[in-house]
Amino acid sequence: MNLFRFAGDILHLLSILVLLLKIHATKSCAGISLKTQELYLAVFITRYLDLFWNFHSLYNSVFKVVYIGTTSMIVWYMRRHRNVKLTYDRDHDTFRYLFLVAPCAVLSLLINARYNLFEILWTFSIYLEAVAILPQLVLLQRTKNVDNLTGNYVFLLGLYRAFYILNWVYRFATEPGYSAWLVWISGLIQTGLYLDFFYYYVQAWKQSKKLQLPS
């Protein structure tokens, strides 16, 4: 465990909490992609399947439970809460799950470290996490005026990924034999998807203006 990894995990948690609190406080999920949230839930469930038999550390186990729990709550709010579900922007959140899930499933069958169910599901979760933000980014682009909390949510998520890259660099430099090509490449692609958003987020922040994405 290094400081970059720790900062990454905390930022990830913070991003989810920002979103959950926004929904809870405003009773609105306007601008939030349910598709992205459900894809993240699928990512967490397929990756953290090992929770019950593969104990690594209390730290990891607590985070796994919290990530699954908080993301389930977001999905529950958006699908089931009597007021929140009415604010869901389903007409603009039209990205097809299959476009992301199918290629990731095929890729995880073709490129994995070991050919067994647990390993393939874990690999699938790595690939799926890399692209799960896409429905959210598309929705942001369509709704134009991005409210502050939604913007901060995506920014914190991107920052979390950036810190994971620093963590890998640090681990590569300090841990003999550490390598994780599959995770590195997926992670670089994932972080790359945020660059465009980052650019506009920083511009808006520098000019202290409301974040607006170009069409």
Binding site: R5, D9, H56, N60, Y164, G177, Y178, A180, V183
Partner: peptide
């Protein structure tokens, strides 16, 4: 054995 892997990450 194999070196440390990314499985200890979240």
């Amino acid at each position: 054995g194999r070196g440390a892997s990314a499985k200890d990450e979240l």
